[in-house]
Amino acid sequence: MTNYWIQLFINRNSPTSVGAEENLNAILKKYFPGDYQLEIIDIQENPEKTEEAGILAIPTLIRKWPKPEVRLIGALTLQTRVLTGLGIVVQEDK
């Protein structure tokens, strides 16, 4: 049973998407080890899912769980902002 369910919509042809995937993996491994489920969705392979989720921009991160749903757009380059966006308060020096 994991506490976080996260979807990341990417486009493998785009360098910003690759960067986002790496950045997100690093954050999740560091702050939520074993406590998350990550689904990477390539829009080229899954246009229907992209349509269903109403994605416009790439990369888009959706925190499906816990509710409410949160969406982050962009390469996720700023760790602290990603964590705030996901609703995590991080203590410094940890």
């Binding site: 109403g54 962009g74 966006g85």
Partner: peptide
């Protein structure tokens, strides 16, 4: 592609390729 209730936060570079594909 209308605005929905949840907040959109942008962090870093992005593009609209998903929109173009849709």
């Amino acid at each position: 592609a209308s605005a929905k209730e949840e907040d959109i936060i942008t962090i870093g570079e992005f593009d609209l390729s998903a929109f173009r594909i849709r």
